[in-house]
Design a protein around this nucleic acid. Sequence first.
DNA 1: TTCTTTCCTTGAACCGGTTCAAGTTTCACG
DNA 2: CGTGAAACTTGAACCGGTTCAAGGAAAGAA
Lengths: 233, 233
Amino acid sequence: MDTSDFNIPRFLATQALFTDLSTEELERVAEGCQVRRLARGDTVFRYGEPCREFHVLVLGQVKLFALSPAGQEKVIELVQPGHSFAEALMFTDKPYILNAQALTNSLLLSVGKQVIVNEIGRDPRFSLRMLAGISRRLHGLVHDIETGALHTGMQRVIGYLLREHQVEDCSTGEVYIVSLPVSKATVASRLSLTPEYFSKVLHELESVNLIRIDKRDIHIVDVPGLARYGVQT
Amino acid sequence: MDTSDFNIPRFLATQALFTDLSTEELERVAEGCQVRRLARGDTVFRYGEPCREFHVLVLGQVKLFALSPAGQEKVIELVQPGHSFAEALMFTDKPYILNAQALTNSLLLSVGKQVIVNEIGRDPRFSLRMLAGISRRLHGLVHDIETGALHTGMQRVIGYLLREHQVEDCSTGEVYIVSLPVSKATVASRLSLTPEYFSKVLHELESVNLIRIDKRDIHIVDVPGLARYGVQT
DNA sequence: TTCTTTCCTTGAACCGGTTCAAGTTTCACG
DNA sequence: CGTGAAACTTGAACCGGTTCAAGGAAAGAA
């Protein structure tokens, strides 16, 4: 987690967006980048600030969130290592409409707008990858609006557990484990629930033997049963 | 509203996305387009169908909506003439994740994916306009998620009225008129409210003399008062 | 270890918004 | 016009989820 020995071009090459770029191109892009170390709680950007770059998280965790006038916070997205954020905000020439904050000590790579615009001018395939990336993000937001408006809290929790469980090791026999990446309160906000209600929902699912709660590890005991419990409730 | 005498290149030229294109380019793009007349209730596309084009509404009204398993519907967006939709879905090579249906008799221009990809290869400025357009859409969705999670029904209604009122003629002295573009039930769904509750909220606002309801015309009697009523309630 | 802080849980009261079930108005169309 | 369907309103009962308040469990720091 040291900024000095971090090889920017090598990291860029691992990103889907920058595949196919030659070594020279990668180095040129790296020129327009900036590496930042963040401590837990550090702000990456704030609502209203001008936006001249997008960000790729190398290590750690970052949350994107909105704040209500009253100060209440709604998590829009939890960013994991290897993922980027705020690409879209860069292209509208408008200030940030969200806040971003590190949830743990993190390493962040910020890519300046100019090098992206250059690359778009140089390679149409790059444009298409950029468009595809932003479109995928847009897909995700539409999905969130749908589930927010059409599903109950219970259904959103179940949907979250079932969507995330794929990632985890499926070799533990019949029991899948979802490790919550962050605090329960933060996951709750991501799902538009209060921490209290999220807790109640999880414990209801445990009481009917569909999951087992072990700190932040949720053991999914009965996957099909969990899916069924969603539609009826 | 006849398809035969509709000049595609001329219409394309009025779209922000296609500004700067030469007459020949516009004609080439027009080759990849298709004009469709739609009757009220006609489906433009359905969830799950493959997506090989995006759409520009020339005349009429179209709603984009999600359907819950139970058949309940949530309006994601109300499309007005001159506006486009489903650009983003085109770039992910995934099927439509929404449904689109005409609310009134409409005239629709569908632009094939191939001509867009061609244009991206030809002109980086076109890529940037495309990116800016999709990014703006993404902005809107983030805004919807925010207000959906952080604001009450009353606040969403007030926000809607205040955002829309700008468009209307501001010359009627001190009274602004917002004409609901579609049925109250549809606007309600757009705002994630039941028709019943939307009605109650509007009539509450009328009872405290902040608005006057005249069919689909909402006269905003007291703009600052309305804005204030939102924050306190 | 012990202290402190943060995170999580639990229960009871409460409320914003929904549902259901009328009734009324509006409007398109013959 | 009149008539039927669609759109809108209204009230009462209900419920999913929030709020508030308190206590308990984990995790870090000293």
